[in-house]
Design a protein around this nucleic acid. Structure first.
Length: 614
DNA sequence: ACCCCCTGCGCG
DNA sequence: AAAGCGCGCAGGGGGT
């Protein structure tokens, strides 16, 4: 059953049950305690909550210890539908004013939720905090929530319109799956933020100290190792160090290794002219400053992006809690906000350590994108290769037994690379695996011609910009001078759409895998009799020492990065979690691709420390 | 003082 | 030997 829900003043809320077509199936109900009302529905049976945005509505429920199984996220569904309709030239339909109202409601809810920062609280029990007034703007300048009754009406209108448009899709079952998975993904995202990734600040700090020297006492000061290297670099160029200690310095002579301009100028003064200071360019240069410069750049990056400042800002109570942006990337991959959550250097995986008595179950989809292409294209020869554990090793047969060549050929096909030997290798690929090569080449042609392409579940890539159209249409006119930029723009879009069909379909698979995994994990916890009211985001060690021996905590999803997931669970649950992970991969393959002989293997590791996962 | 764009590099 | 796709973030450097 679907139930529309919007928060009201204080702890209250407004509910209204809906029929299968989204029309109201009863009068609106005002409940004084929304959290309690939602929890009661969840215990009774399967409810799909229809709300403006899980990112805004669910975080408060989550912090009160309430977990919901299913929802329909109207703003995420709108983004998917609008993307589809823009691609086929359909003007936006449906109630636009109503959508604007829902956006305002979501923004107000998000602002109120942000006011009660989970990172600063050690418990999620709602009766312990005054700040749990559900949707009162907690931040100065936060938008005021619109009238709940008007919001509920708008919600119901927009949702019913969305159900009609989903049903009208070319592939309604697959597109409906995408909308449901995207919505469930928003539940996972909120839960992962609440749970947090276990992070040991003392391990992180020790790593920084070992590599950079002790933490500087003054802000803006270089750590000892960086200062030393900066001195070596300056000396190699025969100029003063930019932070030399005595007297006023002449900035024209200063040497700041963080400045690409200054590095290029200093090298040019020694007769070496380079196009950039990228690692790949510098690596082959013969100059005494290069070795310390390369070391400096590597360590400076660690210091500026994931140094002590990062640790102070993002880690609280042994947890790193980034905000995940579901569907934040055009391809449907997630983005993140805060702390560079999806770009954590592999080195720092050492700081990701399970709580005592707990483990991390880390699972990584192996060679996901080429396998997705195999399943998408239905290429028999390619699918046969993708039935095996090492796809590239199977493909190598076609490339004289050279696995590396097979890999370059695949990557070139998926990314549109054409340099070096890629051309020859692509020709081999085209000959041996015509359907697979044809699939990405058709996508590239569509992009070059300004059309859109869709993922397997129906996520649509953005149409070209007006600027792109102007540029490329002008070039097609025989009376005008040919602009070389037009060809470049056209090919660039071809590479984008070529990659989109693969990356976005891989994101479909990963999203469905993730939400299947979430459902499976919920069953583990109920089998073990776990209370569903265990406060979210509370260090598990607190539970272990709480003198309640009959309680087993729930396994928690704590990280998701495009094609890998981490579950944090008690050690005795590791086998059950690993089995559920494997089932989730099978289920995703079946739901997304139907019957296919392509395998989507996961490499799963049960470890105490993320760095040991592979 | 702030904003914006560029460069460079981390991840998939 | 790198390039070819998608991101977020820090610092430099120029603008206002």
């Amino acid at each position: 059953m679907r139930v529309a829900v919007v928060p009201g003043p204080g702890q209250s809320g407004l509910l209204r049950p809906l029929g299968a077509d989204g029309s109201p199936a009863g009068p609106p109900v005002e409940v004084p305690d929304l959290v309690a009302a939602v929890a009661e529905y969840e215990q009774k049976g399967s409810t799909r909550w229809v709300w403006p945005s899980a990112a805004s509505c669910y975080q408060v429920l989550r912090r009160a210890g309430v977990r919901v199984a299913r929802c329909h996220d109207v703003l995420l569904a709108d983004a998917l539908l609008r993307g589809r309709d823009a691609g086929i030239g359909v003007e936006p339909t449906g109630p636009r004013d109503a959508l604007a109202l829902l956006r305002d409601a979501a923004a107000a809810g998000a602002a109120a939720g942000a006011g009660a920062d989970p990172g600063l609280r050690d418990t999620g029990l709602r009766d312990t905090g005054l700040q749990d007034t559900l949707f009162e703007p907690a931040l100065a300048g936060a938008p005021a929530p619109p009238d709940p009754s008007a919001t509920l009406d708008a919600l119901i209108d927009v949702h019913a319109d969305q159900l009609r448009r989903i049903a009208a899709d070319e592939h309604p079952a697959r597109f409906g799956l995408l909308v449901n998975a995207e919505s469930a993904g928003a539940l996972v995202a909120a839960e992962m933020t609440a749970a947090g990734l276990p992070w040991r600040p003392e391990v992180h700090d020790a790593l920084l100290t070992e590599l950079l020297g002790p933490r500087p006492t003054l802000p803006g000061q270089r750590p000892a190792r960086l200062a030393d290297l900066a001195g070596q670099i300056a000396a190699a160029f025969g100029v003063p160090d930019d932070r030399g200690s005595r007297g006023p310095r002449d900035p024209r002579l200063a040497m700041n290794p963080d400045s690409p301009t200054q590095v290029l100028q200093a090298l040019a003064a020694d007769g070496i002219r380079l196009p950039s200071t990228r690692l790949a360019v510098l690596r082959d240069v013969d100059h005494p400053a290069i070795a310390p410069l390369l070391e400096y750049k590597e360590l400076a990056r660690l210091h500026s992006a994931f140094g002590w400042a990062w640790l102070d800002t993002w880690v609280r109570g042994g947890r790193f809690r980034p905000e995940y942006l579901v569907g934040g990337v055009v391809s449907g991959r997630w983005a993140s906000r805060g702390g560079g959550a999806l770009q954590i250097p592999r080195l720092l995986r050492q700081a990701v350590v399970a709580d005592p008595g707990w483990v991390l179950v880390a699972a990584d989809a192996a060679q996901l994108e080429p396998r997705v292409l195999a399943a998408l294209a239905g290429d028999r020869a390619f699918a046969a290769a993708a039935a095996a554990g090492d796809l590239y090793a199977e493909l190598a047969v076609a490339f004289g037994g050279d696995r590396a060549k097979a890999k370059i050929a695949m990557l070139s096909a998926m990314y549109g690379g054409a340099g070096g030997e890629a051309g020859q290798l692509l020709a081999v690929l085209r000959q041996r695996f015509p359907a697979a090569a044809g699939y990405v080449e058709a996508a590239a042609r569509a992009g070059e011609e300004g059309r859109v392409v869709r993922s397997v579940l129906g996520r649509t890539c953005p149409p070209p910009s007006a600027g792109w159209r102007a540029l490329t249409e002008e070039a097609a006119d025989p009376d005008t001078e040919r602009d070389p930029g037009a060809g470049r723009a056209s090919r660039a879009r071809g590479r984008f759409t070529r990659n989109f069909v693969v990356q976005a379909s891989a994101a479909d698979w990963a999203l469905v895998m993730l939400v299947s995994l979430r459902a499976g994990l919920a069953k583990i916890s109920s089998v073990n009799g776990t209370s569903r009211l265990r406060p979210a985001g509370r260090p598990a060690s607190d539970d272990a020492g709480s003198g309640q021996p009959n309680r087993l905590a729930s396994p928690e999803l704590v990280f998701f990065q495009h094609d890998e997931v981490i579950v944090h669970c008690q050690a005795e649950q590791a086998d059950a979690v690993a089995a559920v992970v494997s089932q989730a991969a099978d289920e995703a393959s079946r739901l997304v691709f139907g019957p296919t002989r392509v395998a989507f293997p996961l490499s799963t590791a049960v470890v105490a420390c993320y760095a040991d996962a592979k």
